[in-house]
Amino acid sequence: MVLSDTAAATAKSATPMQRLTLTRSLVALLTHEEAVVAGIGNTNFDLFAVGHRPQNFYMLGSMGLAAPIALGGAVAQPERQFFALEGDGSLLMNLGCLATIASVAPRNLTVVVWDNGLYQITGKQRAATGGVTDIVGVAKAAGITKSVWATDEADFTRLVMHALTDDGPHLIAAHVDAAPGAARPERDPVLLRDRYMRGIGAVTSRE
């Protein structure tokens, strides 16, 4: 598939997509033990809901750090693809990470932004992305040139397939709904961390 900047959508889709459906579509494409780091709240609730994978890392806090955690993983394991799933509100807290990702430029990192324009989990207060801020424009200006809006569910699938084979870093943003997260992962940080480390072949540190 050929995908150029000119072919990619330049704006958020008018109609929101279902975050749960897109999460399911993403995970269905992961056939090579790709790592997925899911940010706080509904982002990781939906990732867990579509079926736990050993390569999933669920964040119980640390708003805005999904992409940096995935970046660290991508640097440590250059042969594995890493995905960061982050809500728009979380990413707004830490826009600087987009500049770092662009500078470090890992080939194996894709940031997926679920943009519903809201701080959904705290009561659906409107975020800047629900008004004037275009997160894809921000990412492009930060230097992540392969930053695109998904136009619909089929387009999102195409974009993920492209990111899996084309050198990154990539950022894929999707206008999503504000449906409540469908399930909850365990709230045991050591369990979540240990399972993820084993899932991506990083043995627990021992000297």
């Binding site: 660290g72 993983g73 440590a76 394991q77 990470c97 043995v203």
Partner: peptide
């Protein structure tokens, strides 16, 4: 490499550790 902010640097370092790089 630089991070733009210290908490971002911590995220990167923690992510690397979990992937086997100190």
């Amino acid at each position: 490499f630089t991070a733009t902010r210290e908490e971002e640097a911590i995220g990167i370092a923690c992510g690397a550790d979990m992937a086997g790089m100190r």
